[in-house]
Amino acid sequence: METPDIVLEALDIHKSFGGVPALDGCSITLPRGSVTGLIGPNGSGKSTLIEIISGLLAPDRGTVRMAGTNITSWPPYRRSRHGLARTFQVSRLWEKLSVAENLMAATPSRGRDDLWRTYFGRRALRKADEADRDVIYQTLSGFDLWRLRDEPAGVLSGGQARLLEFSRIMVSGATVALLDEPLAGVNPVMADSVLSGVRQLNDRGITLLLVEHNLSVVEKLCPMVYGMETGQVTASGSISELVNTQFFADAYIGRSRERRKS
């Protein structure tokens, strides 16, 4: 049997805060093009894992690999240039930048972060801007945000903010994206368009890791799910497989209390 093409893997990740372990030998793998769910009670270490994969926290031990490259010690910006993107539980938009600028700043830099070229290579930079225009237009109109292009991102509703975060991922050229509770802070009316946004990301070939509490959402989107408890992956499979496991009983039916505060 052929092993699936792995885009991202985190192996045996350990991380503790002030002596209290948050991740205790946690491993996950994401096959190319998949939507993988990550579920578990509060404080089970899901967020810590996301922070470590995106490079905002350094693990005490363990390896993060992207398409075979060991990226464990890379800073976040380097991971991004390698094709990793993410959203946050509470949307992190650049609020005083316009919606369009939020996308322009998320496209690959192509020399625009270079002070020298800002003054002495302006023609090339203008070309870079031109090259981004079509994809920005298409992405924004695809999410019905084009009419808001000149509004500051701070005025968007929770759902619109989510869609703008997805748009940023699309224009960034990412191949893998981590979505940390994409429905948090989203008005139920907007939930469907956010979910279809998740599907659109995947349709573009972006591999997704989805952290979500709502199991019916996870069931709809993710054929493969990891269940986390106290810093370890204790179950994996489809939701229907997980329903009958001890993990599910512990985490969702409430035989055990939350073992650690978040």
Binding site: S54, G55, L56, P75, P76, Y77, S80, R81, A85, R86, F88, R92, L93, W94, A105, A106, P108, S109, D113, R168, S172
Partner: peptide, 9 residues
Amino acid sequence: IASQVFGHN
């Protein structure tokens, strides 16, 4: 944070 995550050093 968002700035780093989108490729800016």
